[in-house]
Write a protein that binds this DNA or RNA. Structure first.
Lengths: 249, 249
DNA sequence: CATTTTTCAATCAAAATCAATCAAAAACAA
DNA sequence: TTGTTTTTGATTGATTTTGATTGAAAAATG
């Protein structure tokens, strides 16, 4: 029996019941205890299951997607606070661009009561946006597998069909001189385009993003409002250049 | 046996089961172990399979995520058969358009071993396409909540960035005079655009779709090949107009 | 709480599988 | 044909996987 087969068998057994004992796995797979142990370690590493004394158990609450509520509570409080403030800026009837990323994702439930039109390049956002019955448009283009974002030349073209009252961007680095940065140049150009099509731009950046420079420049600082939970002593040089809104969780 | 033949045989064996052992491959192909090893290395390079110690396995997703398949419990054998034939038409290196819908969805696992570029307007397809590591582009535009398809004027514009070797469309009605029809005019125009941008067009229509006229016309019959499980007595009038491929489940 | 039992992680040697190499066979070109 | 290139299969030493063993750690028991 090949290794992936065995892994599959283990996961299958876990689907039926919610736990399996080592003894059962050894019996089912005809492999030795040592091998099963190695498999379990690997599968736990892959977050496919949870090891427990004597065997394995399915990962947390069922193998299903965590519900929206669950997902929200798992998220860091800082992202929540940033998202909450950002969402409070959105007014009824606004057209907004919502960048891909976990912080902008947190804004979605807070937008549900408002009468907004949302354009996004984040595939992960789509399910949630439509489930809240928000009028949603998706940007066309190539899908970047890792971040599940739409990027590339077509995405830029596609974006230009729209105009935004406000756009909310996540970024990977903020630096007084280098401006807003992100590692992927193709993502950078999409963000930059959204920014140019938008009346106001808001950058959602938790404290860890400051000082960091990650290759491709998105825009200069003075083009946007920064929303962050960064401590005050980090900010003087940024405040000289643009508006910075500090939120606390 | 010629090399491409052997490669095909290996891939075929992988389609049926999800893993194959080296020993099985040697036996099936009558080639030496060294040759099989070289084949596997090549096919892995081409991203058509995944090598594992002791043999090969199909690429990631399929075996590891039964949750996706479980979601689609209502997959009739007919849809499977239609999808299987449709997928067999796709050649290495093709650029194809995959329409939103459950039948085209069934094609995805069968495309994993081919080097294809897929453009789709079906949001439900995206997750699965990327999980199979297929190069995926999404059409931009408004999201129709009910069908999770991208539609509207922007979708049409967005589509025009591409050209397809083949396009695979789902349809709600087929009628000798009225042609291919679908209830939503905005969907109809997207399908029609895809068709016009494509070298060949294939219509995936199970038997229930024949005779039905559902409002908005997509195209005339003669523009496409119909792939269906419809009984022969239903087809004479269609066969006069275009090619009809009948599959059985 | 001490003892017994079970399960665990680490280690190691055997077995299986692999990559690299090379010469023979086959396909190809002149 | 002859010489060249490509493909193939056998061999070899290296690598990976495996199962047994051991003492440590964790649960169960009295």
């Amino acid at each position: 029996m090949l290794t992936p087969e065995r892994h599959q068998m283990i996961l299958k057994l876990l689907q039926d019941r919610k736990t399996v004992k080592m003894k059962e796995l050894v019996e089912a797979t005809k492999a030795s205890e040592s091998t099963i142990r190695r498999d379990l370690s690997y599968l736990e590493e892959q977050k496919k299951l949870r090891r427990v004394h004597g065997g394995a158990s399915i990962k947390s609450a069922a193998s299903e997607e965590p519900s929206l509520q669950e997902k929200r509570t798992v998220q860091l409080a800082e992202k929540q606070a940033i998202a909450e403030y950002a969402a409070s800026l959105v007014r009824d009837g606004d057209s907004i661009f919502l960048d891909a990323g976990s912080t902008t994702y947190e804004m979605i439930p807070l937008l549900a009561q408002k009468n907004v039109l949302v354009v996004t390049n984040g595939l992960s956002h789509l399910e949630t946006l439509t489930s809240y019955d928000i009028e949603t448009y998706v940007v066309g283009g190539r899908i970047k597998r890792k971040t599940r974002a739409v990027i590339g030349a077509h995405a830029v073209e596609s974006l230009k069909h729209y105009r935004f009252d406000k756009c909310f961007l996540g970024i990977n680095g903020v630096h007084p001189k280098e401006g807003f940065t992100t590692p992927d140049p193709e993502e950078a150009v999409v963000k930059n385009t959204a920014l140019q099509l938008s009346g106001e731009t808001f950058i959602l950046a938790d404290a860890s993003k400051f000082h960091e420079i990650t290759f491709a420049k998105v825009a200069d600082i003075q083009d946007a409002v920064i929303i962050s939970d960064a401590p005050e002593d980090l900010l003087p040089s940024f405040k000289e250049l643009t508006e910075v809104k500090v939120v606390t969780s």
